[in-house]
Amino acid sequence: NKFNKEQQWATYEILNLPNLNEEQRKAFIDSLKDDPSQSANLLAEAKKLNDAQA
Results as ranks from 00 to 15, higher is better:
Asn1Gly: 08
Asn1Glu: 09
Asn1Val: 04
Asn1Pro: 03
Lys2Ser: 12
Phe3Ile: 05
Phe3Arg: 00
Phe3His: 10
Phe3Leu: 13
Asn4Thr: 08
Asn4His: 14
Lys5Met: 05
Lys5Asn: 13
Lys5Trp: 08
Glu6Ser: 03
Glu6Thr: 04
Glu6Met: 04
Gln7Lys: 03
Gln8His: 06
Gln8Thr: 11
Gln8Tyr: 10
Trp9Ser: 07
Trp9Asn: 10
Trp9His: 15
Trp9Lys: 11
Ala10Thr: 07
Ala10Trp: 05
Ala10Met: 05
Ala10Gly: 03
Ala10Phe: 11
Ala10Asn: 03
Thr11Trp: 15
Thr11Ser: 12
Thr11Val: 12
Thr11Arg: 07
Tyr12Gln: 14
Tyr12His: 13
Tyr12Ala: 14
Tyr12Asn: 14
Glu13Arg: 04
Glu13Tyr: 07
Glu13Ile: 13
Glu13Trp: 07
Ile14Gln: 01
Ile14Tyr: 01
Leu15Thr: 08
Leu15Gln: 14
Leu15Ile: 07
Leu15Trp: 08
Leu15Gly: 06
Asn16Gln: 07
Leu17Glu: 00
Leu17Gln: 02
Leu17Asn: 01
Leu17His: 02
Leu17Trp: 02
Leu17Asp: 00
Pro18Val: 09
Pro18Trp: 04
Pro18Thr: 08
Asn19Glu: 04
Asn19Val: 02
Asn19Lys: 03
Asn19Gly: 05
Leu20Tyr: 00
Leu20His: 00
Leu20Trp: 00
Leu20Gln: 00
Leu20Ala: 00
Asn21Gln: 09
Glu22Met: 13
Glu22Tyr: 08
Glu22Asp: 13
Glu22Phe: 07
Glu22Gln: 13
Glu23Ser: 10
Gln24Asn: 02
Gln24Pro: 00
Arg25Pro: 00
Arg25Ala: 07
Arg25Trp: 02
Lys26His: 12
Lys26Gln: 13
Lys26Asn: 09
Lys26Leu: 12
Lys26Val: 07
Lys26Asp: 08
Ala27Gln: 15
Ala27His: 14
Ala27Met: 13
Ala27Asn: 13
Phe28Gly: 00
Phe28Val: 02
Phe28Trp: 02
Phe28Arg: 00
Phe28Ala: 03
Ile29Arg: 03
Asp30Pro: 00
Asp30Ile: 05
Ser31Gly: 14
Ser31Phe: 13
Ser31His: 11
Ser31Gln: 15
Leu32Ala: 04
Leu32Trp: 02
Lys33His: 14
Lys33Arg: 14
Asp34Pro: 02
Asp35Glu: 08
Asp35Gly: 03
Pro36Glu: 04
Ser37Leu: 05
Gln38Tyr: 04
Gln38Pro: 01
Gln38Glu: 10
Ser39Glu: 04
Ser39His: 15
Ser39Trp: 15
Ala40Glu: 11
Ala40Arg: 11
Ala40Thr: 11
Asn41Glu: 13
Asn41Leu: 04
Leu42Tyr: 10
Leu43Met: 07
Ala44Val: 11
Ala44Gly: 08
Glu45Ser: 07
Glu45Gly: 03
Glu45Gln: 12
Ala46Thr: 00
Ala46Leu: 01
Ala46Met: 01
Ala46Asp: 01
Ala46His: 00
Ala46Lys: 00
Lys47Tyr: 13
Lys47His: 08
Lys47Pro: 00
Lys47Glu: 07
Lys48Leu: 13
Lys48Pro: 00
Lys48Arg: 13
Leu49Ala: 05
Leu49Ile: 10
Leu49Asn: 02
Leu49Gln: 07
Leu49Tyr: 05
Asn50Asp: 07
Asn50Met: 01
Asn50Gly: 02
Asp51Met: 09
Asp51Trp: 08
Asp51Asn: 11
Asp51Glu: 12
Ala52Ile: 12
Ala52Gln: 13
Gln53Val: 09
Gln53Arg: 02
Ala54Arg: 01
Ala54Gly: 14
Ala54Asn: 13
